[in-house]
Amino acid sequence: MNKELTCVGGPVCNEKLSAGLIFAEGQNLTHQNKEALWEIFEAIGRNWSNTIYNSNNQRSSWYEMLKAKTENAPNYTGEYVNAIYVINELKAIYGIGGAYKKLFFESGIDNSAPPTNRLAHCKIYVVNEFIRMQITAGGFKSWGTKYGGEQAKNYHGFLGGTRYNRVSKVRAYDPDATNLKADQE
C-alpha cells in the first residue's frame, strides 16, 4: 500500500481513496477538462525535454487515447477529473512550475503500490500513463545527443504514420560505426 503522504500537496492530494479506478461510467470529459489535462501532458515534455519542439505534434494521438479511455469501459473520466483537482491544489501551493516538479520528481509515490489517495491516483493512472504514451508516440527524438553522436531513433511501440513513412524507423547498422568511437574522442 502507498504510504500516507504528509509532505506533498494539501487536503485534496492526501484525501484517501480506494485503489481501484474511480467509478465514472456514463460520464464524459468537458472541453475545459481536456485543456487542463493537456497542460499535464505538455509539462511532461517540458520537464524532460524529450520532444523536438513541444508536445503539439502528439496532440491528435493524445486526444485519441483520451477518447478511447473515456468512451469505453472502464471509463477513466473520474481519474482524469481527479488529476485536475490534484494539479490545481499543487499549483495553488507551489505555483505552476513547482507543482509539476513536485508531481513528477518529488511526489514520494510508490509507483508499484496500489494508489490510496488522490495524489497517488493522479500519478499512477494519469501522469505515468501520459509519460508512457508520450515516449511511445514521440520515440527518442531528442535523446542521444550527449556525445554529439548518432541517436537511437524510437522507443518500442513507436507508431509511424503516413507523414513519417519515408523516415527510417530505426537506426540501421553502419559497418563503419564502432561503439568505441565516443570513448576514443
Binding site: 535523446w143 542521444g144 553522436g149 524507423k169 530505426v170 561503439n179 568505441l180 568511437k181 570513448d183
Partner: peptide
C-alpha cells in the same frame, strides 16, 4: 556511448 538500442521488439 553511441546509445545502441534494439528499437524493434
Amino acid at each position: 556511448p553511441n546509445g545502441w538500442f534494439q528499437e524493434y521488439d
